[in-house]
Computed example of a mutant assay.
Amino acid sequence: MAPAKEGSTLAAPAGYTAVPVKFSEERRTHHYLYIKEHKVREDLDQTRPQNRTLFVLNVPPYCTKESLSQIFTSCSPVESVELQDKPGPSETQSNSVSKHFSLRHLKGFKVAYVVFKHPSGVQAFKSFKVKKPIVLSGIGHSIKTGINKWIDNYRASLTDVAELQAEVDEFMKGYDERVAEEEEKAKEEEGVPDEEGWVKVTRKGRRPGLARTEAVNIRVTEREKRKRAQKELLNFYAWQHRESKREHLAELRKKFEEDKQKIALMRAQRKFRPY
């Protein structure tokens, strides 16, 4: 959205409150934040409690979490501020496994969710009146731009090896505990028939697998019987051993004669004859 000029007013969309902000005192133009109370069903968004969360639209690219917290702290203490590309569920909870692999810098205009520590924060904002644009970058809360911002982004992208190792160790510890619990539970359930009389069979010494059905067990048993029968009938008698050896020697002699003929043919076709 194009920036507004100093002293101009803009009607907010239905249900929203317009709050003007600008980057610094020297700027002649400002942007409007469109804010309303965040209302959804509690079971859909548990990270943003009812009656304590504000939804903010049209957040300019230079606006940071600290800047938004500074704005709304005048109403009530702020618990958390979350910036996203578009409205939706919390990205930090749904997409990120580790903070070391979710270093994504948002670009362009964004949306924000501001959570107060107390429900009185939302009520205080409804009576909040702004006569002139709020300055986001001042002496007490400066916003870094240009090369200083790039340096901070680069430093944030560097991974602390010790911290990452500690996080990996903690994850593996929890994983090993879950595997041990599953194996212990499988041992307890193994051999105990369920309500329909079926017994769960697992592979001992490994992680518990899926129980086989009756049809699968029958097919596996029949296949093993056929393999066993073939091994027992193959070379069972002494004359079978003699016949197999004789056939093997005949095959070797045949290949030897074929190789001799190939060598003779190659010598006859050779153009260069040194002798």
Rank of each mutant, 00 (worst) to 15 (best):
M1E: 06
A4S: 14
A4N: 08
E6T: 02
T9W: 05
L10H: 11
P13T: 08
A18H: 00
A18V: 05
A18L: 09
P20T: 08
K22H: 10
S24Q: 07
E26Q: 13
E26V: 15
H31C: 06
Y32G: 02
L33N: 01
H38L: 07
V40W: 00
R41D: 12
D43R: 12
Q50F: 00
V56Q: 03
P60T: 04
P60M: 06
P61G: 05
Y62V: 08
Y62S: 04
T64L: 09
T64V: 08
K65G: 09
K65M: 11
E66G: 14
S67N: 15
S67Q: 10
L68N: 00
L68E: 01
S69W: 07
S69Q: 14
F72R: 04
F72T: 01
V78M: 01
E79P: 02
S80E: 14
V81G: 05
L83N: 02
Q84P: 00
Q84S: 10
Q84K: 08
Q84D: 03
K86L: 01
K86D: 05
G88N: 03
P89A: 01
P89D: 02
P89K: 12
S90D: 14
S94Q: 14
S102L: 01
L103F: 13
R104F: 06
H105C: 11
L106D: 00
L106S: 08
L106V: 08
Y113K: 05
S120W: 01
G121Y: 00
V122Y: 04
Q123N: 05
A124M: 10
K129W: 03
V130C: 04
K131L: 07
K132T: 09
K132A: 09
K132E: 07
P133W: 03
P133T: 02
L136W: 07
S137G: 05
G138L: 05
I139T: 09
H141Q: 13
S142F: 08
I143S: 06
T145N: 11
T145V: 15
G146W: 12
G146V: 14
W150P: 00
I151H: 04
I151C: 04
D152V: 10
Y154P: 02
S157M: 04
T159W: 00
D160A: 07
L164K: 13
Y175K: 05
E177Q: 15
A180K: 15
A180G: 06
E181I: 07
K185H: 07
K185E: 11
K187M: 05
P193G: 10
P193R: 08
E195Q: 12
G197Q: 08
K200D: 07
R203C: 07
K204R: 13
G205F: 06
R206E: 13
R207K: 14
L210D: 00
R212H: 04
N217R: 15
I218P: 00
R219H: 09
R219A: 14
V220E: 03
T221Y: 13
R223S: 09
K225M: 05
R228S: 13
E232T: 11
E232V: 06
E232W: 08
F236T: 06
F236N: 13
Y237V: 04
Q240F: 05
E243C: 04
K245N: 11
R246Q: 07
L249E: 10
L252Q: 11
R253I: 04
R253M: 03
K254A: 12
F256E: 15
E257L: 13
E258W: 04
Q261C: 06
K262Q: 10
K262M: 10
I263A: 14
I263F: 11
L265M: 06
A268V: 03
Q269K: 15
F272N: 11
P274L: 01
Y275C: 05
